[in-house]
Every structure is written in C-alpha cells, then in structure tokens.
Design a protein around this nucleic acid. Sequence first.
DNA 1: CGTGGCCCCTGATTGC
DNA 2: TGCAATCAGGGGCCAC
Length: 289
Amino acid sequence: MPELPEVEVVRRGLERWVAGRTVEAVEVLHPRAVRRHPGGAADFAARLRGETLGVPRRRGKYLWLPLADRDLSVLGHLGMSGQLLVQPEDAPDEKHLRIRVRFGDDAGTELRFVDQRTFGGLSLHETVADSADGLPDVIAHIARDPLDPLFDEAAYHLALRAKRTTVKRALLDQSLISGVGNIYADEALWRSKLHYERPTANLTRPRSAELLGHVRDVMNAALAVGGTSFDSLYVNVNGESGYFDRSLDAYGREDEPCRRCGTPMRRRPWMNRSSYFCPRCQRPPRVAS
DNA sequence: CGTGGCCCCTGATTGC
DNA sequence: TGCAATCAGGGGCCAC
C-alpha cells in the first residue's frame, strides 16, 4: 500500500530517470488503468505520443508529469498496488503490466505502470489556470499535504473545528489534508493518544497541532528509510515489502501489547477497513457511536 | 451542502 | 482437497 512517503520516492525516481525524455509510443494493456482519462485508451496513447515529460510533482498520493510547452499533465495515482517502474526495454513483461511508455532516445529503458488490483491509473488533464505548480484540474480539490511547506496549519485547525465528524475520518479527508492513509492515520492517532472516533469539533489547537506533528513524524520517518533504498535503475515502490512495517506501533498489531502500556491492542471494523488502537491509551469519546 | 457509506478490483488467507 | 467467503484499501460518487 503506497502511502505518501513511497509516492515521494517514486516521484524522485521519475525525476531522475524519466524527466526530459520524449515519448515515442504508448501501449495501454488494460482499459481500467486509464479510466480517468476522458478520451479513453486510444486517445491517451495518441495525445502522449511525441510529448516531452517535465519534472514530476506530487500532492498527497497524486503525482503528475507536466508536458513541456503545454498546459497538460500526465496524472498518476498508484491506488492500492500500483507501481511505476523504469525497466530495460527487453525485460519481460510483469504479470500485471497495464501501461507501457516507450521513449525516443537510446537510453534503453521504458516506463511501466504495473498494478495488480487496478485501483490506480494514469490520465491526461489540463492544468489549473492560475496554479504555480501546474496542478491538474481534476485534483484541484485535493488539499496540500503535511510535508508541503505551504500547508496552512491554522486553516487546518479551523477546518477541523468546523467539521461535524470524527478525527480519523478527518485525517482521511483529502480536501482537508492529503496523503494520509489508513495505516499512518492509525499510527498518528496512537502517538497522539486519540481514539479514532473522537469528534473533531472540540479538538483544541494544541491537540490538533500535536496530531499534525505526529503525522509529519510518521511520514518523515518512512521517507528517511524509503528514500535510501532505490538508488538503482528501478523506480520502485513495493508497499508490501515491509521496509517500514517493523516500525509500526498500531497498524496490524491486534492482540499484541501496546508499546506504551502493554495492554493488548484491538482491531475494530471501520468503514470497510480496520482501525487499530490501544483501548487504554486511546479512550473512546463519551458519546461514541 | 455536508456527511456517511458503498463499491470498483485481484490475490492471499481462512473456514467449512 | 477444493471451493467459497473474507479481507485489504483510495477515493469517486451518490443518497440522505
């Protein structure tokens, strides 16, 4: 499951291995991988052909490659199981290869989008008119992520107070803060000693600031580890390789002792997912639903 | 309009 | 042993 730090590692890999290259041919092997592209697979391939890719950017878990001299970007999301790989042209196709991008240079590598569960995909979108960083229009509603220097902490706190929702829902609400998934939400809540069903409306400024700090810490720790592991030909993220899961304190630790107090951790079904928490450190709110 | 919930998908795992 | 149910989860979309 690629979270924000893994997507940032992918972005850096793309910057190194793909930026500045000109597309020669695009092959869409699974229509679902381009389902967000308005014109369909053939249109995606035709429009991308001949274009030169710019420096990749990222917001939350979305990343995009602006096309040189056009107000157009290739937008990508890895979903649950997506990978963007730079592979030798003669490497055998991956089992779940969905899109192949060939380049017109002689570097001998191509870009591949591989995705088992097909939740992710690539698409072409126009740039928001007055956006400095070339934000694609379809993700204009995605908030800045907590590692973005322009993330507005005061506005975030006010937005939390205004919402009539619970804290974990708010962490996963991409219009408030982006890039926080189920795993890091549980980690940040554990570190903050907050129950996932705590209402956001009465969170004090220090509490929300602490929570945000823990979100950043969790992400930066993963980034520090993941950022050193991919200095190779591969632009590779494998969220299930477990390079950070040994450092998880909450997620996936049902019945294991809380690392703070020793109480067995619990798992609760939540939004078709799971929430992991310590029943002692993270007390439920008085009016838990 | 804000909030909550459903569903897209495939493969590993679990249960009978 | 084999088949079916369950689980994993980002985020768009829709109903209330």
